[in-house]
Amino acid sequence: MLVKIYEENPNEREIRKVVDVLKNGGVIIYPTDTVYGIGCDITQAKAVERVARIKQVQVEKSNFSFICSDLSQLSDYTRPISNPVFKLIRRCLPGPYTFILNANNNVPKYFKGKKKTVGIRVSDNRIITSIVRELGNPIMSTSVHDEDEIIEYTTDPELIHEKFSDLVDLVIDGGYGGNLASTVIDCTNEIPVIVRQGKGELEL
């Protein structure tokens, strides 16, 4: 199913349709402020496994991140954050950044494996933010990669739908996506470290 949603004014009925798919254990592809993402409700274990199979990775060894609706959801899934780190996160989010933080026990066990961390995003895209807010908890997120050696990420939602329609339950057409992933900052130690430079200029 391909659903058109406009970022300037996301249609509430369409947002609820997407949320119903997520609550029923569905897997969706959606726009962010960087590249298109593929994900599901973090509480739906079977859906998480489906995403892992699509990406051909094991859940516990993957680098899936959580997209939150706002900063208030951070403390639900992370251990206490120092003031300097929180100021950095507040300065950057919503925006094209993923922060790796120490996870607390609310993060479902199937994500953690031997890891004790979680990647957190708050996207500056009204479509996915509206979906997460309506859902009531984060959605798991990973990038939609392209098999082309030159173009790493597919930006055309119709091409994404063609490629993934048999693998996912719903693709959101939110217009052309970007082809630069988020910048990833590891904040699990005292001094934050950029571990992947992507979209967004950040001085630590």
Rank of each mutant, 00 (worst) to 15 (best):
D166R: 11
S141C: 12
K116Q: 13
E162H: 04
L159V: 15
H145W: 05
I160H: 01
Y110L: 11
Y153R: 01
S165Q: 11
E147F: 13
Y153F: 14
E152S: 13
S130I: 06
E152M: 13
S123C: 12
I139N: 05
K114W: 08
N137E: 02
D124K: 06
Y110I: 15
S143E: 00
R121T: 09
G136S: 00
V107N: 10
R126K: 14
D156Y: 04
I127F: 09
L135W: 05
I131V: 15
D148E: 11
L167G: 01
V107E: 13
T142P: 00
D124T: 01
V132M: 01
N105M: 10
N125M: 06
I160G: 04
K115Q: 12
T154A: 09
D146N: 15
F164K: 07
D146I: 05
N125I: 07
I127Q: 12
S143T: 02
H161V: 00
M140N: 10
N106D: 13
G113L: 07
D146L: 08
E134V: 02
N106E: 15
K163N: 12
T129W: 03
R121P: 03
K116V: 11
H145T: 12
D156Q: 01
D166H: 13
P157C: 07
T155G: 00
N106A: 15
D148A: 07
P157M: 08
L159A: 15
P157F: 03
D146T: 07
E162Q: 12
F164C: 04
K114N: 11
N105D: 15
V132W: 01
E162C: 05
D148G: 08
V118R: 05
I127T: 11
K112E: 11
D124V: 02
I127H: 10
K112C: 12
I160P: 03
G119F: 01
D156V: 03
D156N: 15
T129N: 11
E149H: 06
E162I: 05
P138S: 10
P157G: 10
D156G: 01
K112W: 11
S130C: 05
I128A: 05
R121K: 09
E147T: 14
I151S: 12
E158M: 13
G113M: 09
P157D: 08
H161A: 13
E152Y: 08
M140G: 10
Y153H: 05
R121S: 05
Y153L: 02
G136K: 01
P157A: 09
V168N: 02
T155N: 02
T155A: 06
N106V: 07
I139Q: 06
T129V: 14
D169W: 00
K116A: 14
D146W: 04
D148M: 04
K112F: 10
N125S: 08
T142E: 00
K109I: 12
T129R: 13
E147I: 15
P108S: 08
S165D: 04
